[in-house]
Each structure stands twice: as C-alpha cells, then as structure tokens.
C-alpha cells in the first residue's frame, strides 16, 4: 500500500497523519514533511499512526531526524501505532525518546 503523509497545523501543534507502508523509498517524503513542519516552529509534533501498517528502519531514521531537527523541547507523540510498528520502536529503544499513545 502506497505511503501517504498529510500535515496540518493546529495552533502550535504540527499534526502528521501517516498511512500505508513507510519504507526506504517513502521515507524521503516523510522527511520532507517533517522539515516543512519544523519550519512552522511547532511546540509539539503529533504523528497519527493508526493507518501505518509497516515501518522499515528508514522510517525510524526519520523519527530520529525529526527529534534532532525539532530539538529537545518539542515533544513527539505517536498515536495509535500498530503492533509491528510499536514492536520495532520498542526493540530498538526509540520508544523512550517519544511519547506513545493509544488511539482514542
């Protein structure tokens, strides 16, 4: 399934909605969107992950990029990670650098 990412600013929060499969090819698109979001100087980065079915290591690299691009003061929240994505985050330890939140 093709990867898609949408960016919406809600006040000072940047909301990214991800869907499909985030692999090495599609990671570039996410990286570009993160850069755009960073340009708005958000106070929070909220990523809606409910419809993301797969994340390769390239996807994780973008999350690391986001963390470093935004700076420590900008919290990154991942909402509704599917089990395989969550597992990847936990095994690699990246879940300690972001907030994981269940879908509402």
């Amino acid at each position: 399934m093709a990867f898609n990412v949408d960016l919406v600013m809600k006040g000072s929060e940047a909301h990214l909605t991800l869907s499909g499969e985030l692999d090495a090819v599609s990671a570039g698109a996410l990286k570009g969107t993160v850069e755009t979001a960073a340009g708005n100087n958000p106070t929070k980065l909220i990523m809606h992950m409910q419809n993301l079915s797969f994340m390769a290591s390239a996807g994780l690299r973008v999350l690391i990029f986001a963390k470093q691009k935004m700076g420590e003061q900008v919290g990154i929240t991942l909402i509704g990670c599917q089990a395989p994505v969550r597992s990847t985050l936990e095994m690699s330890g990246f879940h300690r650098s972001v907030y994981l939140q269940d879908a509402e």
Partner: peptide, 13 residues
C-alpha cells in the same frame, strides 16, 4: 532488530 538492520541502534540503546 537484526533482520531490520537496526542492531546498532538496539545495542546503543
């Protein structure tokens, strides 16, 4: 995460 090529991240973590 070896099959994902993320062994470096996992060990550093």
């Amino acid at each position: 995460t070896g099959r994902l090529g993320m062994q470096v991240d996992e060990l550093k973590t």
